[in-house]
Simulated scan of single mutants.
Amino acid sequence: MPDFAAFRAEVKKVFKADIPLADRSDWEDWINRDRAEIARLTAEIAQAEAQIDSIVYDLFDLTEDEIALLESAV
């Protein structure tokens, strides 16, 4: 879910009812917390992929030109 407004619109569409006003803050907090965790994990994965790429490039003794060629193809 990109944000609370999108979540709320989807709830309205699917359930034909709005989220009660008293519950909106809890739902919004949950969504924001979830988004932060997703962003953290995505950054961690990107860092791990970069480390793996570096190890593979070293194992195959690739030149900078070969690395650039590989990365442009992906």
Rank of each mutant, 00 (worst) to 15 (best):
A43M: 09
W30K: 13
L59S: 07
I52L: 14
D53E: 10
W30Y: 10
E37I: 06
A46D: 14
E37L: 11
D29N: 15
E44A: 14
E44F: 06
E64G: 00
W30C: 06
A50V: 07
D26M: 05
I55V: 05
L59W: 05
L59Y: 10
L21F: 03
N32I: 04
L62A: 08
I55S: 02
W27D: 02
F60Y: 15
A43K: 12
L59R: 11
V56E: 07
Q47D: 15
S25M: 09
A43G: 13
E64M: 04
E64V: 08
T42F: 03
W30I: 08
L41F: 09
E28Y: 03
I38A: 12
A22K: 11
T63H: 02
E37C: 02
A48M: 12
R33A: 14
E64A: 07
R35C: 02
D23N: 08
A43N: 14
R33H: 09
V56M: 13
E44W: 04
D29C: 05
E44R: 12
I45P: 00
S54I: 00
E49Q: 15
I38C: 10
I38S: 09
L62V: 07
F60N: 04
L21M: 04
Q51S: 11
I45R: 14
S54A: 15
L59F: 06
N32L: 07
D34A: 09
D26L: 06
E37Y: 04
R33L: 12
A43P: 00
A50L: 12
E44G: 08
I55R: 09
A43F: 02
I31T: 07
I31C: 04
D23Y: 07
D58K: 14
E44L: 13
D26K: 11
I55T: 03
S25K: 14
L21N: 06
N32W: 01
D23S: 13
Q47H: 13
V56P: 01
L59H: 08
L62S: 05
W27C: 09
S54K: 12
A43E: 13
D58Y: 03
D34F: 12
V56N: 07
E28H: 03
E28K: 12
Y57F: 15
D53G: 01
